[in-house]
Simulated scan of single mutants.
Amino acid sequence: MVQYLGLHETIDLHELLTFKSLCLTKSTTMSALVQDEELKTILANDAAAGQQHIEQLQKFITNREAQ
């Protein structure tokens, strides 16, 4: 059975995907400028988590088959 997202759900997912992409870009960019090792670690962990979140959101948009 194929399930389709509603228009508002698709728009919400795109907004979340845009926000998470911006957060990932900011974490990656700032980690190159930071000198404190603890803060670098925090930003690296945030970037890794952000990448996973983006992949999950992309699956919601592209995978429309029922689980």
Rank of each mutant, 00 (worst) to 15 (best):
F19Y: 09
L24Y: 07
V2I: 15
Y4G: 15
T41K: 14
L22N: 12
S27G: 06
T18F: 03
A66C: 13
A48P: 02
K20A: 12
A47V: 02
A47G: 03
N45K: 11
D36N: 14
L43S: 00
Q58A: 02
S21V: 03
K40D: 02
A49D: 04
A66M: 14
E15I: 14
S27E: 09
N45A: 09
I11K: 11
L22I: 11
L39C: 10
D12N: 06
Y4L: 15
H8K: 13
E37M: 05
I54T: 06
I11P: 03
Q52G: 11
S31E: 10
E9C: 05
S31G: 01
Q35A: 04
Q3G: 12
K26C: 11
G50F: 00
D46H: 06
N63P: 02
I11E: 05
E15N: 14
L43Y: 00
I11F: 01
N63Q: 14
S31M: 08
S27A: 15
V2G: 10
I11Y: 01
L17Y: 08
L7P: 07
K20E: 14
L24V: 11
K59L: 10
Q51G: 00
L16C: 06
L43T: 00
N45G: 06
C23D: 08
Q35M: 08
A66N: 14
Y4F: 15
L5Y: 12
T25E: 13
E65M: 11
L16R: 03
K26F: 10
L33S: 04
T28K: 14
L43D: 00
A32N: 06
I61G: 03
I42F: 01
N45H: 09
V2E: 13
T28A: 09
H53T: 14
K20G: 01
T28Q: 14
Q52V: 13
E37P: 01
A66W: 09
L13G: 01
Y4T: 15
L17R: 03
L39P: 04
A66E: 13
M1Q: 06
F19E: 07
D46E: 06
A66Y: 15
T10D: 08
A49E: 01
L22K: 11
T28M: 08
D36V: 03
I11S: 07
E15S: 13
E37I: 02
V34N: 02
H14D: 08
L43K: 00
K59T: 10
T28C: 09
Q58W: 02
L22T: 14
F19C: 02
V2N: 10
F19L: 11
V34F: 05
E38P: 00
I54M: 12
K20V: 09
A49S: 04
N63W: 04
S27F: 12
S31K: 08
K20S: 12
K26M: 15
Q58S: 01
E9M: 07
A32K: 05
T18N: 08
L13F: 06
L13N: 05
L5P: 09
L22E: 13
D36M: 01
E9I: 07
M1V: 10
M1S: 11
A32C: 03
Q67G: 07
D46A: 04
H53M: 12
M30H: 09
E38N: 08
G6H: 04
Q52M: 13
Q58P: 01
D46N: 05
Q35I: 03
K59Q: 14
